[in-house]
Amino acid sequence: MRTAAVAVAACALALTTSAAGAAPKSSAAPGFLDADELPAHPGSQWYAGEVADGLPEIVPFCVDGPELPAEGASHRLFHTDLDTGASQVSFTAGSEQSAQALAAQLRDSSAGCAADWLRDNPGGTASWRDLGNQDVGDGAHSYGVHIESAHGSQDVHLFGVGRDGSTVTVVAWGQMGTLADAPVEAYRTTLRTAVEKLAG
């Protein structure tokens, strides 16, 4: 599994590619976050790419399993002028039951991310924090993961999975640093907004 630092840098690169040649927004795509709805960054504004169909070229760290469905997926990538990046990936499932199963799979992937990363990165360290449920739509849950490579680089990621009806969304935020550096409450507000937007 790639490190979070590579994922953040790749996210910014993918954003440039997506903005230049993104597929047009699907008429069925759910509502997406705007740049100013992400946690405020002290040193930069946020920039948003276009909403595009399918999965992003770089799927968010911790939810990048091969079982993710490309059909019914759409995404938007965000970046700052510094080392902080974010993404939102949404999935429109064929039924509420399918959406429930996908949301559960994504929550499990996020919750197990630190342990998975440690198995693939001997010599590194990782910690995980459950950031709790949110009563919005048909439910949302967020997590924090901090990893430190054997060479000493540190990265922190926040992940949230939310569902409204047959639509599931994942909001990922990441930067260099530790969980103490992460804007947890502001991120939870962002996740709430993302799930509220799924209803249109």
Rank of each mutant, 00 (worst) to 15 (best):
D81R: 10
V136R: 03
Q45N: 12
A115R: 11
V51R: 05
A20L: 06
A180Q: 05
G43F: 05
A14M: 09
A172F: 05
V89A: 02
R2W: 10
Y187D: 00
G124N: 10
G65Q: 07
P39Q: 01
G139K: 00
S110H: 07
P66L: 10
S153C: 11
R163H: 11
V184K: 02
A12W: 09
V170Y: 08
C113V: 05
L33V: 05
A86Q: 02
F61Y: 06
S26L: 14
T190V: 04
A19E: 11
Q175G: 07
A150S: 13
M1K: 11
T169K: 04
D181C: 06
S109L: 10
P56G: 11
R2S: 13
Q100W: 14
S110G: 04
D130R: 12
G112N: 12
G54Y: 13
E196Y: 03
T193M: 12
G144P: 00
G200R: 09
T3L: 12
C11N: 15
H79D: 14
G137H: 06
R192V: 05
L38S: 03
N133C: 12
A12P: 07
E96R: 15
R119W: 14
V8W: 14
E185W: 10
C113N: 07
Y187S: 00
D83R: 13
T190E: 03
N133Y: 13
A12V: 09
G72A: 08
V6T: 15
W46I: 02
G174T: 02
L68K: 06
W173V: 04
P183M: 00
G174W: 03
F78H: 07
A99S: 12
A29T: 08
D164P: 10
R129Q: 14
V6N: 12
L33R: 02
V63C: 07
A199E: 08
L68C: 09
C11K: 10
D34E: 15
F78M: 06
P42R: 01
G85P: 07
F91D: 03
E50Q: 11
E96L: 13
V89D: 00
G72Q: 06
S74F: 03
G144M: 00
A35T: 00
A70Q: 05
E50T: 14
A29P: 00
T167S: 12
D36L: 02
F32N: 04
T167N: 03
G72L: 13
R163W: 08
R119D: 14
R129D: 09
A29R: 09
Q88F: 08
T17N: 13
G144A: 00
E67P: 07
K197A: 01
A199C: 09
F61M: 10
Y143L: 00
T3N: 14
K25M: 14
F78Y: 11
D53S: 15
A115H: 10
